[in-house]
Design a protein around this nucleic acid. Sequence first.
DNA 1: GGCGATTTGTCCGTATGTATC
DNA 2: AGATACATACGGACAAATCGC
Lengths: 234, 234
Amino acid sequence: MDLSRQELPLYRELAERLRGELHRFAPGDYLPGELSLAARFAVNRHTLRRALDELVREGRLLRQKGKGTQVLAQPMIYPMQAGSAYTASLSAQGHGVEAVLLDRRVRPASDTEARHLQLDPGSPLLELDTLRLIDEQPVSLIRHRYCASREPLLADYRGGSLRSHLAARGLTLSRAYSLIGARLPDSEEAQRLLMPRHAPLLTVLTLSQDLAGRPVELSYSTSRADCFEYQVAP
Amino acid sequence: MDLSRQELPLYRELAERLRGELHRFAPGDYLPGELSLAARFAVNRHTLRRALDELVREGRLLRQKGKGTQVLAQPMIYPMQAGSAYTASLSAQGHGVEAVLLDRRVRPASDTEARHLQLDPGSPLLELDTLRLIDEQPVSLIRHRYCASREPLLADYRGGSLRSHLAARGLTLSRAYSLIGARLPDSEEAQRLLMPRHAPLLTVLTLSQDLAGRPVELSYSTSRADCFEYQVAP
DNA sequence: GGCGATTTGTCCGTATGTATC
DNA sequence: AGATACATACGGACAAATCGC
C-alpha cells in the first residue's frame, strides 16, 4: 500500500478527489454505487462512505436509501431586492422565475391565522403551496393563505405569479408586515429544494393587505439562504 | 401488518439516552471513555461513537483526541421579536440586555463600505465589535463601522447601548436600509455565541443615517436564529 | 402485485495509528 | 515508557428502500 503520504486521512483525501470530479456530473445525476466507487478507489466501502459523508455535509451530495446518491447544484448567489412581489422583482433582474403549484386545500384557520386575517377562529382558509424556481433551480417554498371566500379568484390558478394573477382579477395587494427568521429545513423541505439538511433556510411570514388596508393574504416562505437575501428599505 | 412501533436505529436511541443524561454533568466535565460507555450500554464502540457523533453535531459535546469528550453548555431558546434599536426594543420587552465591547480598531474602508457611507475609498473607518447578551446569554455579534471622524463621539464608549450613547452626544440615527440573510457560523462566531456550528445565524446588514439623511453607520449583526427573529413593518 | 436485484443504512468485530497524560 | 483515549481503516452481515421485470 501507499503509505508515503500520511498528511491527510485517507477518507479526507478521497473526499478531495471526489469533490474534484463532481463537476463532470450534471446536478441531479446519480453517482455510481458505493461498492463500485469503493472498488475503483481500492478502499473499503466504509471508507468511501466516510468520504461521501464529507461531501454530503458540504451540501454537494444527497443520499437516498435504495436509490442512490445524487449530485446537487452548487450554490449560487442571487442578491435580491424584495420590497414587492416575488416573481416580478426577480424577473426584473433578468432571472427566469417559475412557480409550480404543489398543493391546494381548504382547512379551518388557527387562532393566530384568524387574528392576522381578522377572521373568526375556525373560519375556512384556502391554502396554496407553491415551489419557486429561479433559473430552473428550486429556491423557495411558499404557503399562501386566504379567506376561503377568495376561492373564486384563485380557482383557475395553476402556477406563475400569484400577485399578478390576483391583480388581473382586481385584487391588488401590498405588504403590511413581515417577520423574518432562519432555521434548518425538515427532510421534505430539503428534498423539495434539493438542498442539504444542515444548510439554513430564511423564513419570512408576511401579512398583505388590499388597497383599503384590509388584511387579505398570509404567506410563509422558506428560501435557501445561500440563494436568497432579503432587502428592507423604508 | 405488525408495524405498530417504528423503531429508531440503535445509535439514534442511544443518542437520545445520552442526551437525557448530559444534565448530570457540569459543562466542562469529561464523559467516561468510549469503551466503558460502550460496555455500559452493551453496544459496539462504533455504535456508541455514532451516537456521540449526533451529540457533537448538536453542539453538546466536544471531542479532544487523546484527552476525552467534554460536555458543553446547553443552548437555550428565547423566542422573540426585534424591531428597531437593538438594546431599546429588547429592554422594552423586559429582557436584560447587555453589550460588551470586544474590539475597536481603525482601518481603511473597502469600496463597498465607502460607497455605502459616501466616503472616498480607503478613508479611515472606526470599527467596533460588540457582543450582545440577552438575559445573560450571548445572542448576537455586531460590527459597527463609522467614518473615523466620529471617533471623538465614541472614544469613551465601553459598552451598553450604542444608539443611546450617540444620541446622548447629539447624534440621532435611523435605519435607512437593511439586507437580511442567513448562514452558518464560523468557529469563532460559534465559540463567542456558545452555539453549535450547524445551527443557523441570521445576518443583518444595516445602513443608518442621521436626521439630515446622511449615511453615518454601517452595521453587520449576526444573531442566533433560535433566539432571534426580525420584524419588518412599514 | 410479487419478487429478485441493486443501493444505501446500520451494526458488529478487529486492528492499528496518534495524541495526551 | 506505558497507559489511556480518540481516530482511522479494514472486514462481514443483514435491514430497508427502490426499481424493473
